[in-house]
Nucleic acid binder design. Structure first.
Lengths: 121, 121
DNA sequence: CCTGAGGGTTAGAAGTTACTAACGTTAGTC
DNA sequence: GACTAACGTTAGTAACTTCTAACCCTCAGG
């Protein structure tokens, strides 16, 4: 089996790679509460504006951020739609895992009941 | 402001870093449906067992996997609890972002009503 | 035109990650 | 004990990420 990413996979992959960085999560938390200018965001951390700008680019490309220009400033804001793919991925993982747990329990019950037809359908 | 990770942050960070790898997500999907041996998992990909074993270690350390030994084999299964922290993070991000959107709408309404005191929060 | 403020982009150093190959370990079989 | 099967671990390498420093772009005012 190969890695054959469908459209949703690519979107989820970008979101996960972007969120895997602590600094980017911190940035996202900032602009989740308020729309902020790039300079304000950079001032909130002890790194250069360059680094913050690169993080903003990554977040923007992952669809987790929207950019709005106002004069010479750029204002950023979190984009909740960018999290939907990841949310679905989590929900699917959760459901599958719980299903496994349920089947394991029923399998044990089946063993003690000596009833091989007892399976979750 | 510094990056000051609380307990949940560390847990979420480990889960996100683990999930940011396409191969690890593929592995997790495999063991989300069925409990599989390390060899079976490795056979599903075109990489060496070594690489898969390292991925399994990362997933295990992130709390996304449980390991069970049966004779000379090791059986792996997804651990849904490991996703709770990440799920909460997503929910909080979502709520904050939607709150921002709501405030922006109300701010615009405040502008058209010529009522500068109209602010949420 | 020029200047200054606000920001993005490029080049390269330093650190991290994902991989392969070789070796070590544990459980069962003869 | 000797042998095999099934895995994990270590060493080393290639690729990627994150960061800083220097440079370039765009908008507003004079």
């Amino acid at each position: 089996m190969n890695l054959r990413p469908d459209r949703g996979e690519l979107e989820t992959d970008a979101a996960l790679r972007a969120l895997a960085e602590p600094r980017r999560r911190a940035i996202l938390r900032l602009v989740a509460r308020d729309e902020l200018a790039a300079g304000q965001i950079a001032a909130a951390f002890e790194v250069t504006r360059t680094a913050v700008s690169q993080h903003l680019t990554v977040l923007k490309n992952a669809g987790l951020l929207t950019e709005r220009r106002e004069g010479t400033r750029r204002l950023y804001r979190a984009r909740p739609e960018g999290l939907t793919g990841l949310s679905q991925f989590l929900a699917e993982m959760w459901a599958s895992s719980l299903d496994v747990a349920r089947r394991l329990v029923e399998a044990e019950r089946g063993i003690s009941d000596a009833d091989p037809t007892a399976q979750a359908g």
